[in-house]
């Protein structure tokens, strides 16, 4: 009898382990397919909640919105993927007859497509260059992206110049004493290649592909935790996730804060631009509805939920 019970238990255990194995595989597949890693998971969740909240009054809203139909096409910056995906999800729920398509081809390519007339909106994670404005493209800043440079709490260096920051990340400066701090080695922590935060940081500090990382971690949470736990560590994360376990360093004497980003004085920030041919007033109904949505309370909530700052 006892033998039978143990046998049954054994079978159950193996079955559950197999199941666990399968679900594990499923998860990794999902993350690969939808491009959502640990750091986007939380924001995606809040976006999902957001859209759930809007889903409730949806029956009324949809009856109003079904007369708007057609396709809006966007192309451009890969860094804006998170924002675009979240906005598209919310927008298409509010306007079920509108299809929004986005290609992530890079800022320059997106503006070229706009100039060529193949898309309605060109996405760029930088300001439009004068040469690009000549074609008639007008920039509409929909969000601001801020990056905080963080150190562990014990570190007494609280202000860095962007030049020094670049030297730290290229490995030219290796000890905090060279920056007026304690005699402590600098542990340079960053994100993996392909990460939007890494892309933005390296671009803004002008250390593109020149960084000598001691650790490359694959999520915002991991960077926060490692920096908090490692004496002498330095890392970078989206401004919105900074908490009291780490110190956000001031750059060139300017604190990393939303106010300073809005004022334009903080160095590690970039605009997310959705450029159109001509001003928004000159756009067709679909495109102006899209911008109305972005500027609505709901759109602003979505923008905040992916860790961005609303421009004034």
């Amino acid at each position: 009898m006892k033998k039978k019970i143990t046998k049954a238990l054994g079978i159950l255990l193996t079955a559950s382990m197999c199941l666990a194995g399968f679900t594990g595989c499923g998860n990794t597949d999902d993350t690969a397919a939808t491009n959502s890693t640990a750091d986007t998971a939380t924001t995606n969740e809040s976006v999902a909640q957001e859209s759930n909240a809007t889903a409730e009054p949806a029956p009324e809203a949809t009856t109003d919105n079904t007369d708007v139909s057609g396709t809006i096409s966007l192309a451009g910056s890969t860094s804006m993927e998170k924002l675009c995906e979240a906005l598209m999800e919310g927008f298409m729920e509010a306007y079920p007859n509108v299809t929004v398509t986005t290609e992530y081809t890079g800022s320059g390519a997106g503006l070229e497509s706009l100039a060529a007339g193949s898309v309605d909106i060109g996405n760029a994670s930088r300001h439009i260059k004068d040469s690009e404005a000549e074609s008639g493209a007008v920039e509409n800043v929909v969000a601001l992206d801020g990056i905080a440079v963080i150190t562990d709490l014990e570190n007494d260096v609280t202000d860095l110049s962007t030049e020094d920051l670049a030297k730290v990340y290229t490995g030219e400066i290796k000890n905090w004493s060279e920056l007026g701090g304690k005699d402590e080695a600098i542990v340079v922590i960053g994100r993996e290649s392909g990460s939007g935060t890494r892309d933005a940081f390296e671009e803004l500090v002008e250390v593109k592909d020149a960084c000598a990382y001691a650790q490359e971690l694959d999520s915002t949470g991991a960077v926060l935790a490692k920096v908090a736990a490692t004496p002498g560590a330095i890392g970078y994360v989206s401004l919105d996730v900074v908490d009291d376990t780490v110190t956000a360093v001031a750059l060139n004497g300017v604190e990393a804060s939303e106010e300073n980003i809005l004022a334009g004085t903080y160095a590690l920030q970039r605009p997310f631009v959705m450029a159109t041919m001509g001003t928004i007033d000159e756009q067709n109904e679909l495109v102006s509805t899209w911008f109305d949505y972005i500027n609505s309370e709901e759109g602003k909530e979505i923008t905040k939920s992916v860790g961005l700052i609303i421009p004034e």
Binding site: T31, S36, T37
Partner: peptide, 26 residues
Amino acid sequence: GGAVNLPLPFNSVRFLTTQLVSEMSY
């Protein structure tokens, strides 16, 4: 550690498996 380096004892390194885990998403 996850940085691509020569596998010396005190170097931060990346394995074949972690290469996939950390970069596949983006």
